[in-house]
Amino acid sequence: MFRNQYDTDVTTWSPQGRIFQVEYAMEAVKQGGCAVGIRNKTHAVLAALKLSQDADLSSYQKKVFKIDNHVGIAVSGLIADGRILCRYMRNECLNHKFVYESPLPVARLVRDVADRHQVATARSWKRPFGVGLLCIGHDQTGPHLFQTCPSGNYWEYYAIAMGARSQASKTYLEKKLDDFEKCDLDELVKHALRALEESCGTRKADDKDGKLTKQNCTVALVGEGKPLLVLDGDDIAEYVDAIHSEQEEATGAAAAEAEMSIDTSQGGDGAGDLPSVPTQAPTTETGAAGGDGQAEEQQPMEEG
């Protein structure tokens, strides 16, 4: 990469006022599997794409964690770093619950964890956390969705995606942003999964060629009167099947109407891939953040 004399130490500023080590840590986030979050006035949901070393032989790396009954996170980047932050967040929630017998407001939790990110960017004996978090939660001010970054920044969103090829997911989310408000929970989950599927490229690790399966993704949801629920495997099979059959119907209808034009159905929102057609959806490639491709193969630390 662009090696220069200011980029090896987290305590060294560049003459332009940048800290390269932090920026490099942010690259690690972009290489983790994609995670998507959406919220509306009542609920917040997460969907995350899990990676595995070898789809046939290994299990998938877990990357959605329950923090408390009202908070959950999805992690992109170095999952091991994410678990440290996860433990920290669980502790914060427990301490708050012990003292106040009530759930910790989500915004305050996220600010605390972002401050921890920052500390790791300012000490010579530390390195920045190589993870971004999507954090959903529900408290007295309603549902929330936050994203944190290795730099210690955090933002609150209606909908956001992060990780490898997340640009494709973001494009979907931006397009559908106005629909989320009136969605019920089921529809919100489906939106999250559809957005997530946008980010599935063809990877060696998932042999499904750009398809979600019940094995390679996880969903988490939380809302008013609904404690955090993490759905895996068979629990999400229904949702995954539902979005796939909807897509097939849509392509079927489109095909009947436009008489054989697979190209257009792919070009749209990339929802047109039939399982039997292992194509590369053009949108996903163009949308991928730069520098993804080659680094995925190397995996210096376990990404997820």
């Binding site: 106040y100 017998e101 009530s102 407001p105 305050r108 007295q140 001010t141």
Partner: peptide, 14 residues
């Protein structure tokens, strides 16, 4: 914090 969360009586009691 200025985030709209204020303590409830039961939290103060706890």
């Amino acid at each position: 914090y200025d985030d709209g969360c204020t303590m409830t009586p039961s939290e103060i009691h706890a």
